[in-house]
């Protein structure tokens, strides 16, 4: 998964912003299956901005509703300002669509593994 014709690619460091620990677990599993690494997670926008680990990342997966309210779109904007691409992972496609310009993709819950693997590739700024 992580190699191409030129050479072995470094795994992406992916951050997860999600308030349901079960989903974080599942996402961690899917990230690892896709050959990448979970760089950290936060359950709220405020926790994201306070986490020093949230800067050294290649991309992020963001739920729309978080522990501090409907702050997923704010989190995506905050990351975008810092040049970090993100993907919404949410059951609420209609809300995600309103903020489509802040993300590089939307994964609808419940997560389908193949859809997840395809979209996560969009976090790779090197392609």
């Amino acid at each position: 998964m992580t190699s191409d014709t030129i050479g072995v690619r470094k795994p992406l460091r992916i951050y997860c912003i999600e308030d349901n620990p079960l989903i974080v677990f599942h996402i961690e599993h899917l990230i690892e299956k896709a050959g990448h690494v979970l760089a950290g997670f936060a359950d709220s926008f405020s926790q994201l901005t306070a986490d020093p680990a949230a800067i050294d990342i290649d991309g992020a997966l963001v739920d729309v509703d978080l522990a501090d309210g409907r702050t997923g779109p704010d989190a995506a904007a905050w990351l975008k300002e810092r040049g970090i691409p993100s993907i919404f992972v949410t059951g609420q496609q209609d809300i995600a669509n309103l903020y489509a310009d802040r993300v590089v993709g939307v994964v609808i819950k419940p997560i389908v593994a193949q859809d997840f693997a395809d979209k996560v590739q969009r976090l790779d700024g090197r392609t």
């Binding site: 079960l22 599993h29 059951g91 997560i111």
Partner: peptide, 12 residues
């Protein structure tokens, strides 16, 4: 949300 939780529990 519940289905997503169930799916996560299953995978884990």
């Amino acid at each position: 949300n519940i289905l997503a939780s169930v799916f996560s529990i299953f995978e884990m």
